[in-house]
Design a protein around this nucleic acid. Structure first.
Lengths: 340, 340
DNA sequence: CTGTTAGCGCATTCAT
DNA sequence: ATGAATGCGCTAACAG
């Protein structure tokens, strides 16, 4: 169809530089020592003719595509986008280029996206979150180096890079306890969701453990399940209020639900933090601009992505990847006040 | 390096189906009529051997890559991510697959990213926003079908898809006027930024025109330049207050600055909307959960992306693309009150 | 309608 | 150190 590409091929370079195509290829890939003068001649010819190697020919001949498939879930989610940025950074001075696919949190689509990446002969795959079964991931891993980010897999711990969500949620809850709160509500996500996205479950557990360590028994009436969207935060607070069980603080499993919760409290005329303290999780960029600014836990998503990129590169080199467990950092802002 | 791909080739299929490779290719691409029985045999062989064509061989032989390059600016920006989602949707049932590159709003990086896309022999390119010069874009357009989204180019109007920002800002301002406001401040972006991102300039003009049409002369003391980031909204409001020129409403060129403005007002004890009304632009997802919810203008970013995808497909088919000018929709929420 | 014949542009032996 | 030869897997004329 379109075919006005630079028709300059390796042969044109060879001719202009008075060498063979093989030699040009060698200086291109740096795959063997080439006499300096010839190398220079080649370089010059390349510059003069503005030669760009044909990636398809390269890939076909070499068997490598120099691309890394990245399966994400919905562009537009702050946390995941941060990871993408990190991957971009981490790949920056490698020879590899990321190929993105969007799974939209739907296993079927994730599956298709994975197939597409495989069809594109990616040299490695980074899967970010998602709900696709471990079984399928195992099969993929058998074909190509695979790294799963922001999700903890039971069966392949050496292919995962994640955050210590338990510990982070524990800290969040402990902070509220330290501020004198005893009746701390928690907005989590429904069990269905938790089964695949372990993170949320871990946060719930961290919350419970912190309470127990403080000598308090978790009260189920203080826990509401949402779906991680903002709107569900609104509904969850309504639900909470309707239960009549008093509380002085709310800890939501993600910032988005905290935004919703904040709005619901506002609508009810409940002041934050004077009447109720609020804590989120994720440190989305708008959290700092909430009124009042939201206390939350920062997940280092960009570094996560960067490390992920490095790790997959290591895997492709046959080395075992370095897989640190990331910790979250508490971001103290005005949405929490001392109780009593 | 990695080479455990399905080594099944077109020849294996040919053999198993008792036909020639060409025939297999023909049923694969549907490029010619094939006897039904042979077609079935081929299909079956493909299924049984789980054959996946090698994309590189295909591209090398056909000259098409079946990919569309998408140059975006920073993953994580709500508006741009919306466009990405739209593109994904619009490409869904085409044979094309998007290849994303990130320009980070830096002309040099944008340039590199474009080169990379070109190297990957994309069949078409969609550029979202960005600051890269029109001159360069023209050169790119000479090589491959090019569509520029969310940016209005002087020299190539038939390659652009954008929103009528002037009209939208006019509406926003008129709404405030209708609500009785006369002293309306505006947060825009610095001139440097405006030169490349025309949108912001258009919004500024729409604001001015609406005032004039209402018989008011725009007051430069009511205009502050930020950089579109949240933090600049905070500073801009500080600046505004320090000038001592009274105002009863603020219209920010984007929601992010409105978030910052909201925080600054909160810190100063100025109530929204009782003391000052606030309007944003973009309808980012958090705008609805601001306290109080932000009145703003919705830019249909997902539809924009979808139409962009269709348009580039049309261009690649040699047809002139349909390029509607999108209009923004006013989203009325509680951050604006009637004046006096 | 179908098989045969040539490449597509490059990487990689194998000689030298 | 370098050139010649071969093939990566597929598509696209070309005959028939």
């Amino acid at each position: 169809m379109v075919d006005n590409k630079s028709k300059v091929t390796i042969l044109d370079i060879a001719e202009k530089a008075q060498v063979s195509a093989s030699t040009v290829s060698r200086v291109l890939r740096n795959s063997a020592v080439v006499a300096e003068e010839k190398r220079d001649a080649v370089m010059q010819a390349i510059a003069e003719l503005d030669y760009r190697p044909n990636i398809f020919a390269q890939s076909l001949a070499s068997g490598q595509s120099m691309t890394i498939g990245v399966l994400t879930q919905n562009f537009g989610s702050p946390f995941y986008d941060g990871i993408l940025q990190g991957i971009l950074l981490g790949l920056e001075d490698s020879e590899y280029w990321p190929l993105f696919a969007d799974g939209r949190w739907q296993p079927t689509i994730e599956q298709q996206a994975l197939d597409l990446l495989l069809d594109r002969r990616v040299d490695g795959i980074i899967v970010i979150g998602g709900q696709i079964s471990e079984e399928i991931l195992q099969k993929v891993a058998a074909k190509v180096p695979l790294l799963v980010v922001a999700r903890q897999l039971q069966t392949m711990p050496n292919n995962c890079l994640y955050l210590d969500n338990f510990q982070a949620a524990y800290q969040v809850t402990k902070y509220l306890l330290d501020m004198g709160h005893r009746d701390i509500a928690h907005l989590t996500a429904s069990v269905v969701y938790q089964e695949t996205v372990n993170d949320i479950q871990q946060r719930y557990r961290g919350y419970q453990q912190a309470l127990r360590d403080a000598g308090l028994e978790p009260d189920p009436r203080l826990v509401v399940e949402g779906n991680l969207q903002q709107q569900s935060g609104v509904l969850a607070v309504e639900m909470l209020l309707s239960r009549g069980r008093p509380f002085s603080a709310i800890f939501t499993a993600n910032d988005q639900m905290a935004f919703g919760a904040r709005l619901a409290l506002y609508r009810r005329g409940i002041r934050v933090p004077e009447d109720v303290s609020l804590m989120g999780f994720d440190d989305e960029s708008s959290a700092a601009y909430m009124v009042p600014p939201l206390t939350t836990a920062r997940q280092p998503s960009v570094p996560l992505g960067q490390v992920a990129a490095q790790a997959i590169l290591q895997m492709m080199n046959g080395r075992p990847p370095e897989l640190p467990v990331f910790a979250a950092e508490l971001i103290i802002r005005e949405s929490v006040s001392r109780h009593r």
